[in-house]
Design a protein around this nucleic acid. Structure first.
Lengths: 128, 128
DNA sequence: GATAGCACTATCCTTTGGGAAAGTAGTATC
DNA sequence: GATACTACTTTCCCAAAGGATAGTGCTATC
């Protein structure tokens, strides 16, 4: 029993580090607003109030927090111009391009999965 | 102004469907326990109490719920054997293989991102 | 008859994510 | 002096996720 437990440790540690890396990736894309914000800023750089109008439903508090998160993760740059009143422009950084393949894979899998689920629900209906 | 808003609609709709597909994918992998459960069941099929010991910290209530989620999404099969007492074995399905490339991309990006963040924190320290 | 193991379920509680509404500091315009 | 605009912050609130603990129905073993 003890032997089995001990044997599992190397595997478990390797798995844990895999899980943690994957979780890191999931974490930065997580929540209701990260993706809509990235997509809207990919279209064009925008000011705070412009973003609020583009991404409908988001409140200033959440927008402020999410932009900070995106900035900390290097996806967004906050540019302040000393006009009166100050202009703050948020723009997507080149680093965001590194997300491309991840997002593409997620998109492909998500689309396929949605079809699969729809299909399996149809079959259930046919049976009942 | 109205014209601009109208022009954005096709783009926005396309983006929304992309976002939704990606969100579907993120959703099924989300939460604290989905990945650890998938990884532990990839090693070997296990009974309820075995899983509870493999994935340390999970409570029976959460385990029960998560296994149901994974089953609904087609990742896990619940096999009941009419022994006394009943044996319930949870095993990974072949459908889980479709996750491979997504998980791999997430792993690669997560690892690279962690290094990037660590590096940028080191730089900040050097400056201050 | 008591205890233990299996596969859960039920109840209660805390934490976290996110939302509504109002407020703030600075400037500009009427 | 009042109103408005920009870029937020503050306070309070609610719902969902998740955790702690106890219990259930069944059988097997001492």
């Amino acid at each position: 029993m003890k032997a089995i437990v001990d044997e599992q440790i190397p595997n478990r540690e390797k798995c844990l580090s895999n899980v943690n890396a994957i979780r890191d990736a999931l974490f930065v894309l997580n929540g209701k607003w990260k993706l809509p914000l990235i997509f809207t800023l990919l279209e064009r750089s925008q000011r705070f109030n412009e973003i609020q109008q583009s991404v409908q439903g988001i409140t200033p508090k959440i927008l402020s927090k999410e932009l900070k998160d995106l900035e900390e993760n290097g996806f967004v740059k906050r540019c302040v111009y000393p006009t009166t009143p100050v202009t703050v422009i948020y723009e997507i950084t080149p680093y965001s391009d590194t997300l491309k393949s991840v997002l593409h894979e997620l998109y492909l899998w998500g689309t396929q999965h949605r079809d699969m689920i729809r299909e399996s629900m149809r079959k259930k209906k046919d049976v009942s």
